[in-house]
């Protein structure tokens, strides 16, 4: 079959489940209930055991993989062919199935700890705690430190934060597959942008301070410091790890779009966003071709008003952009292009 470079016909989101109708709200309630049961009860453990899985977290990992595969198929069917999306989603699904499920499951067979190679600090907030690192084999500890402090920022400088947020990260991959039907629901107002900037950088500060306190508590600190650090660790895990990333982040997909966590609260997204601003990634705007239709802004899952840049002929880099590529894909005039080339100051002439 011959394919156009960028295909995809007009679609519709008038279905109530995709447009905050009663079914949409019910899906949200069901997702929130699921996360509450997962985090704070053991009801899922017998189910996991009955399925032959080690514990409820592998049941969750399995459901996560199924949600992603189904969502990816739906996404490609709805938005048509695009090699960027095909390649990206294939990588997403492979990483989830291999690094996010299969590998951690089999590692104990080789007397290795269950380890998720695709998650780094500060998203995986306990990854750099001294006690965590000490408990790992040397190569894993090196990977955890190298990944968080060298690989992630360096790759973001080169390719933009999308290399992680839209290609590797499980949260981002779920948002771009299972969460894709609701991507147009992300608020795009200036007010939502203001909230995002305060919230996400506050999250980064809290994550860094908590980590430093825990490092202090587990190394030099006396009992008082260790006590405070322990409480901060618990509090951070509860608020960020369970409530914001899980219950709110995924539970509100059908209400506020699939990137509530990534856009407003993820400390890793904040860190990589700052790196991205200094790096080579940008969205290039073709001059004087924008018809201000609003497809790019509507389908930006991060709530960026892409049209505001496009209609002003401004190529741009926004810290929050996860480079999913949908703005470029839905543009009926082909105005936008993601690229990681020369910095913005270089005139491409």
């Amino acid at each position: 079959m011959h394919l156009q470079a960028q295909a995809g016909l007009m679609t519709t989101y008038r279905e109530p489940w995709r447009n905050r109708g009663v079914t949409g709200v019910l899906i949200s309630v069901a997702l929130i209930a699921f996360y509450c049961v997962l985090y704070w009860t053991e009801w899922l453990s017998p189910v996991a055991e009955a399925l032959g899985l080690r514990n409820k977290w592998f049941l969750y990992g399995g459901l996560y993989s199924i949600g992603m595969i189904g969502g990816a198929a739906y996404m490609l069917r709805r938005h048509g062919t695009s090699r960027y999306h095909q390649v990206r989603l294939a990588v997403n699904v492979s990483i989830q199935v291999i690094l996010g499920f299969a590998l951690p499951y089999v590692m104990p067979w080789f007397e290795q700890p269950e380890y998720y190679f695709s998650y780094f600090w500060p998203l995986k907030y306990d990854a750099l705690y001294p006690h965590t690192l000490q408990a790992l084999p040397g190569y894993m500890a090196v990977w955890a430190v190298f990944g968080a402090l060298v690989l992630a920022p360096a790759a973001s400088l080169l390719f933009g934060k999308r290399w992680y947020c839209s290609w590797v990260c499980g949260c981002g991959a779920l948002a771009n597959t299972f969460g894709d039907p609701w991507r147009h629901l992300t608020p795009t107002s200036t007010a939502s942008w203001r909230f995002e900037k305060v919230a996400i950088h506050a999250s980064l500060v809290i994550a860094v301070v908590t980590t430093l306190m825990v490092v202090l508590g587990q190394t030099v600190g006396g009992t008082a410091v260790a006590g405070i650090a322990d409480e901060m660790k618990q509090g951070y895990g509860f608020v960020f790890g369970s409530i914001l990333a899980g219950v709110v982040g995924t539970g509100l997909y059908p209400i506020l779009g699939p990137r509530v966590w990534c856009r407003n609260f993820c400390p890793m997204a904040a860190l990589l966003g700052l790196t991205q601003k200094a790096g080579r990634f940008r969205i290039r705007v073709k001059p004087d071709m924008c018809i201000s239709c609003g497809n790019c802004t509507t389908y930006c899952e991060m709530g960026i008003d892409v049209r505001a840049y496009a209609q002003n002929n401004e190529s741009f880099t926004r810290a929050s952009c996860v480079g999913c590529g949908m703005c470029a894909h839905v543009c009926p005039r082909g105005v936008l292009k993601l690229e990681a080339g020369q910095p913005l100051s270089v005139d491409l002439g």
Binding site: M10, T11, T12, R14, I291, C293, G294, N295, T298
Partner: peptide
């Protein structure tokens, strides 16, 4: 130029 996207249901009125 965006009216047909509202007709199809791909965009809301406000989005245009």
């Amino acid at each position: 130029t965006a009216l047909m996207y509202v007709l199809s249901g791909q965009l809301s009125h406000a989005a245009t």
